[in-house]
Structure formats: C-alpha cells, structure tokens
C-alpha cells in the first residue's frame, strides 16, 4: 500500500512540513499527498521537486487533489 500524507484542511506551511517529514523518513519510494487547495498542490509539488522527488501524477480527489510523488 502506498504511503499517504493527509494534508487536507491544513493551512500553510503544514502540507509542506508533513510532506517533507515523510520524504525525510522514507528517503525514496512513493507518497500520495492529499491536499484541499491549489496552493497546497503547488507548494507540495515544488517542495518535492526541490528534494529530488518527481511529481508523477496529480488527480482530482473530492474537492481537492491527490498528488503522487516518487523517488526511485
């Protein structure tokens, strides 16, 4: 099962902090980050990219998005 981060409803910069913490804990792999705003979607994507992770997929999820990031 994929690792998930649920950042829905959290204000800046919590979605990025949660994502960064999980990235640090895992080192590599795949994480599904759930966010509720476009701002969080962009911030999480930018943070992941800056850590050498790849944004594999962004799809609508409920009223928000599921951002899938990966590092091989």
């Amino acid at each position: 099962m994929a690792e998930t981060v649920d950042a829905r409803g959290l204000s800046c910069p919590q979605p990025v902090i949660l994502t960064m913490n999980r990235i640090k804990a895992l080192g590599k792999g795949s994480i599904e980050v759930f966010v509720d705003t476009d701002t969080s979607k962009e911030n999480v994507s930018r943070a992941a990219t800056s850590k050498g992770w790849e944004v594999k997929n962004i799809e609508p999820d409920g009223t928000g998005y599921k951002v899938t990031i990966e590092k091989a």
Binding site: G9, L10, S11, Q14, D36
Partner: peptide, 8 residues
C-alpha cells in the same frame, strides 16, 4: 505548532 484542520 498547528491550529488543526479546516473543513469544507
């Protein structure tokens, strides 16, 4: 520090 979640 975290003020918790907002809800739709």
């Amino acid at each position: 520090y975290n003020l918790g979640r907002a809800e739709p």
